[in-house]
């Protein structure tokens, strides 16, 4: 084992992993996190704490992670390059490791233009791939990006995201290969609604043997309303919501849409599970955490494994 991560243990044991996601509040209210953490507990192997998702100011990812950890959850701290240069990134990497956090997810970050401070200056000193490599060198070589050595390395299980649905499609397996080459231990994908396209991508991944070098968690999320579905289809860059999904939700009464959205999510989990090389799911029910237990249960993924370190 590279780390003390529960997620790493579950994945290494060959069991199908489940990660969740928790968005910190737009305030200093710790209770919000405790409440969400209590819902997720026992239903996921680890959970992501977003880092200023959509470039909106929220509680720091690492701070929310510590609160979640106090509730007995295993956090995955997301870290973006949008707000930090390599100096700040390395300081935070050391900090979270010292606080006993075992996982991080390396992201470039949503552009500041999308958030509530569009006038902010973006940093982008590094990109996500360079961040992965930097953290790997810190962990495995005990080296800072500048080459200086450190006494105690941050033992972090390193994750990255990948979007099989962005353009150009032919490049998407290459980009995954670059993240693997840089040192990613696990990958969480963009939310999957187009299972066929995802399967095609996975085929390319297997053709290069990448699924044997990195653990791939398929991103899934329940749809709450018709509005949310349409918004994702038309407004979110890099999202692929096929017409069949919209039609399926249109086929039920308005009151039933969220029920149907949950069922659809379970169906997609069952489908992606059949695809060779998928090591788990990453279930994103942001601001709808209460449905996580139900979805995980309906997908037959309970109880979650308990593996002693």
């Amino acid at each position: 084992m590279k780390t003390r991560s529960n997620l790493e243990r579950v994945l290494e044991s060959g069991q199908f992993a489940v990660t969740g996601e928790l968005g910190p509040p737009r305030s200093a209210d710790a209770e919000v996190i405790r409440k969400k953490a209590k819902i997720l507990k026992g239903h996921v192997d680890a959970f992501n704490i977003t880092d200023g998702q959509t470039a909106v100011v929220r509680m720091a990812s690492w701070a929310a992670a510590i609160i979640g950890k106090e509730e007995g959850l295993e956090p995955i701290v997301q870290m973006t390059c949008r707000d930090r240069n390599r100096i700040a990134l390395q300081m935070d990497v050391l900090g979270i490791a010292a606080l006993g956090i075992n996982n991080m997810l390396c992201l470039t970050g949503d552009h500041q233009k999308f958030g509530n401070h569009p006038a902010a200056r973006g940093v982008y000193d590094l990109d996500s791939i360079q961040l992965v490599r930097m953290v790997k060198d810190m962990r495995d070589e005990k080296k800072f990006q500048c080459g200086d050595e450190m006494a105690v390395e941050p033992r972090l299980f390193i994750g990255a995201a990948e979007n099989p649905f962005a353009d150009p499609f032919e490049f998407r397996v290459t980009r995954l290969a670059k993240k693997v080459e840089a040192g990613a231990d696990f990958i969480q994908t963009q939310i999957i609604y187009n299972v066929d396209k995802f399967a095609e991508w996975m085929k390319g991944v297997r053709d290069r043997g990448l699924h044997e070098r990195v653990k791939i968690l398929a991103g899934v999320a329940p749809i709450k309303s018709m509005g949310a579905a349409r918004y994702m289809k038309t407004k979110v860059p890099g999202m692929d919501v096929p017409d069949s999904v919209i039609e399926r939700l249109q086929g039920v009464t308005k009151e039933q849409v969220s029920r149907e959205g949950i069922k659809l999510c379970v169906d997609i989990i069952n489908q992606v599970r059949q695809i060779e090389g998928v090591a788990g799911i990453h279930l994103m029910a942001i601001e709808w955490e209460e449905v996580v237990p139900e979805i995980v249960e309906a997908a037959g993924l309970l109880p979650r494994p308990k593996i002693a370190p």
Partner: peptide, 25 residues
């Protein structure tokens, strides 16, 4: 838009930059 040296990022779609649909990626 993000000075990426390992692009295109996950937001590139239909040849446009995710940050501004009037801008090519």
């Amino acid at each position: 838009s993000k000075n990426l040296l390992n692009g295109p990022c996950g937001g590139s779609q239909a040849g446009k930059c995710e940050v501004d649909p009037d801008m090519p990626c």
